[in-house]
Every structure is written in structure tokens, then in C-alpha cells.
């Protein structure tokens, strides 16, 4: 190998690292931007958990009165304020998706707390669903998205831990979806409803379609672990992630609605961005690895550690 060809490989590796990083940055950005919209413009889906007597009893321990907790009508109570604060935390996390760098530890810590926030959201939705396990599992992609970005920035996008975390994120998202879609837990009515509206099929055909999609979800879960299947599995996961995220606005938006219904539905797609950006990350990573293996014996992971964040 000549010095020149080594430099070309490093240059290519740098560029690819940037692409991989941006997959995670963009996915995380849209995820938190979507949730920010859901908090600041609408009410988050888990809000009913906060609006419960159990919550009030808990906050009462800290001296909050009924009016302080609920608001009086003339002003917001703790609940409304909490939702607003959380919304702004989401905005901050969305911004951090692009500003965080390898050595900016404060930003990385804040991003990590984004995973904790997403875990809390997932648990809240899990409770609301009546403790349906797939509800918790399917949020794996969104929960792990910030921490995946932190890993990519701090230990490298090609680090084995980073890629394994990405694989786990995909497996959780698609495993959760699959458990619902095949009916091991009751298939959410919206799955069938969206299928019917988007494709126009009747109930039975839609159920069959979801069953097939559910089986494919499981195949993806195993496929990403099998070397000769992993690229095609990741590619399928990316496409299916886009389709399922897009199904919300496609099914719900209409020319007749104010803003065509965009304010109601687009953020539902946005916060599902990790469902297709993480598979895209894996697909590209495995594609680049394959190409670079065919180049020669340059150890990319080692290189990645020496040339980590190209946007320094």
C-alpha cells in the first residue's frame, strides 16, 4: 500500500463517518423536534398519567396544593408547567443533536438525559396501554437514539458498542411492532385503521397484511444479527420505518382540514424518525465496511478512534 492510497482511504472513512454521524443526528433531531411539538403545541400522550390523583398525592408530599397542581383556570398549574418544561427539554435535545461534539461533555450528558426522558415517556405509555409489553419495547429506537448519538460521538460511529446498541434499537422497535402486528398482544386499532385508510383494503385483508408485516418484523430482528442478511434486513427496516411513520399523516391529513391537518399528524412521523434513521445508519455502516474490506486490510475501527469527529 502506498501512502497516497492510505490517505484516500482515510479521507473516504472520514466522509463516511460524517454520513453515519448525521444519520444519527438527524434521526435524533426529528425525534425530539416531534416530541417538542407534541408538548408545546399539543398535549403529550402520557399526560393522563400526570393528571391523576396518584400523581397529585405524590406531589402533595412536596407541599403542592390542589390549585398549584391543577391551575386555577386563570393560570397554569404544575402539570401544565411540567409539560411546557419537558417540551423545552425536547427542544434543547433537538438542538443538541447538531451541536454536540466529542469533547463537549455537558452537551453529551444532556443528550444522555434525553434517553432517560424517552424511557420515562415509554414507561408512561406502557402504563396507559394497560401494561402491554410491546408498547415499552417498541420505543427502544426512540429511547436509545440519544444515547446512540452520544456513543457515536464519544467512542466512534464504528465502535462495536455503538453498532450493537443500534442493532438493539432496531430489534426493539421492530420486535415491539411485530408483537402487536401478529396479534400476540391485541393489535392496536390504529394499525388496522391506518392500513385500511391508506391502502383501502377491508378489515380481513388489512389484518392479514399486518400479520405478514409482523412476521417480517421478526425476520428483521434476527436478520440484523446474521452477516449475510443484515444489510438487506436493515434496508427493509429503513423502508418499513419510513412507511409506518408516514402512514400517520397519509391516513390523517386532508385538503379540507386547517393546515391540511399537518399540525395534527406530522410530528407523529417526526418522532418516529429513529425507526428509519437507525436502520439507515446500520445499512450504510455495513455497506461501507463491506466496501472497505474489499479495499484492503486497513482497520477502520482503529482509524475511527484516531479520526473521530470530523466536524471538530
Amino acid at each position: 500500500m502506498t501512502i497516497q492510497s492510505d490517505q484516500a482511504k482515510v479521507k473516504a472513512s472520514n466522509w463516511q463517518t460524517q454520513v453515519l454521524e448525521y444519520c444519527l443526528r438527524i434521526g435524533n433531531f426529528f425525534c425530539f423536534a416531534g416530541w417538542a411539538w407534541g408538548h408545546l403545541y399539543w398535549e403529550p400522550s402520557y399526560a393522563s398519567i400526570l393528571w391523576s390523583e396518584a400523581s397529585f398525592e405524590w406531589f402533595q408530599q412536596f407541599g403542592y396544593s390542589w390549585e398549584e397542581f391543577t391551575g386555577t383556570g386563570a393560570n397554569d398549574g404544575l402539570i401544565q408547567k411540567c409539560i411546557q418544561w419537558i417540551g423545552w427539554i425536547c427542544v434543547a435535545n433537538a438542538v443538541l443533536s447538531f451541536t454536540a461534539r466529542r469533547n463537549s461533555w455537558i452537551q453529551l450528558c444532556l443528550l444522555t438525559s434525553g434517553s432517560l426522558f424517552m424511557l420515562a415517556v415509554a414507561v408512561a405509555k406502557y402504563i396507559r396501554s394497560g401494561f402491554e409489553l410491546p408498547m415499552l419495547i417498541e420505543h427502544g429506537g426512540q429511547i436509545l437514539s440519544p444515547i446512540l448519538l452520544v456513543m457515536a460521538l464519544s467512542i466512534g460511529v464504528r465502535n462495536r458498542i455503538t453498532t450493537m446498541t443500534a442493532i438493539i434499537a432496531v430489534m426493539m422497535t421492530f420486535g415491539g411492532h411485530g408483537l402487536y402486528a401478529v396479534g400476540l398482544w391485541p393489535t392496536p386499532a390504529t394499525f388496522v385503521g391506518m392500513t385500511r385508510v391508506v391502502i383501502g383494503w377491508d378489515y380481513d385483508a388489512s389484518k392479514l397484511f399486518l400479520l405478514v408485516a409482523g412476521v417480517l418484523d421478526f425476520i428483521v430482528c434476527f436478520g440484523v444479527l446474521i452477516p449475510f442478511l443484515r444489510r438487506s434486513s436493515a434496508l427493509y427496516a429503513m423502508i418499513w420505518g419510513i412507511v409506518t411513520a408516514a402512514a400517520r399523516p397519509v391516513a390523517g391529513m386532508s385538503w379540507e382540514l386547517n393546515y391540511w391537518g399537518a399540525d395534527q399528524f406530522l410530528h407523529e412521523s417526526a418522532y418516529r424518525a429513529p425507526h428509519f434513521f437507525i436502520p439507515l445508519f446500520l445499512y450504510l455502516y455495513w455497506t461501507y465496511t463491506k466496501v472497505q474490506h474489499s479495499f484492503g486490510s486497513l482497520t477502520l475501527e482503529t482509524k475511527d478512534m484516531t479520526l473521530p469527529s470530523t466536524t471538530k
Partner: peptide
């Protein structure tokens, strides 16, 4: 972090 911990405690309580 404190806020996140509070949320988790609240959820666990619920």
C-alpha cells in the same frame, strides 16, 4: 437529571 429522577419515581409510584 433531578427532574428525570423525579419523573421515574413518579412513574414507578403510579
Amino acid at each position: 437529571r433531578i427532574f428525570a429522577s423525579l419523573i421515574i419515581l413518579l412513574i414507578a409510584n403510579t
